[in-house]
Design a protein around this nucleic acid. Structure first.
Lengths: 119, 119
DNA sequence: GGGTAAATTAACCATATGGTTAAATACGAC
DNA sequence: GTCGTATTTAACCATATGGTTAATTTACCC
């Protein structure tokens, strides 16, 4: 059974759109209003609002209020969560490579063997 | 203007589905056939084929042939690409924290003013 | 209160995503 | 060639995603 993980779903999904990555990058420099985030992004304000909702759901950003502005701030945790998942995967991959050499030695020693299954 | 990046789009999109992450994790242990990947995943073979296409497009996996089997292998590069992007973002975030004190001073000054446009 | 600016919501539309079942393909074995 | 197994393709469907414009909300200013 799949180990279902809503959190990673939402985080990676949020990171998969270039406009959202651009906004995150902009927010790396500090808080910004919706208008400021929208300005370089060839799309309407409502579209930007939707992207912000996606990122908010993934907790990549949080919002506050300042008069009629709703400044956005980037949150670190989801990026760490994503990074950890990726590095876990890479770790497994690396350790598999470490075992490859041993495996090949075993193969060499079993010269006579003829099992043609997947490899 | 948005710096458009098809590659990251495809990678993060591919990582955003739990079934695909499960398959990648399984592939971390070594090559597997479509049937082997499908077995723990409560869904039909055609659905699995589609997920594999998504991952192949993102270059997260590559395929070979062995009789009627099409074994899948995980590729490392896209995970590295994704990891680098994330760590870049975190780096910016960290350096922004270094500047936090200055930033708070600016905030204080803006609190008082009434035409307070955030910038 | 009325005017203006920032942002969101509503309504709508096109396309993508994620799934299904049934049919087709690819390949080895007989 | 026929049979059986692995996988893909085709056709279809429901819902999600990403965008639009128009209307609405929120808050400051006069």
């Amino acid at each position: 059974m799949v180990k279902y993980d809503d959190e990673l779903d939402a985080i990676f999904m949020a990171l998969s759109h270039p406009a959202r990555r651009a906004m995150l990058a902009r927010l790396g420099e500090g808080e910004a209003t919706v208008g400021e985030l929208a300005q370089p992004l060839d799309m309407s304000l409502p579209a930007v609002t939707k992207h912000l909702k996606v990122m908010e759901k993934a907790r990549l950003i949080s919002r506050s209020r300042n008069a009629q502005w709703r400044p956005c701030r980037r949150e670190e945790a989801p990026l760490i969560t994503a990074s950890i998942w990726i590095e876990e995967q890479r770790k497994v991959w690396e350790s598999r490579l470490d075992r490859l050499e041993d495996y090949l030695h075993v193969m060499e020693q079993e010269e006579g063997s003829n099992d043609g299954q997947a490899r």
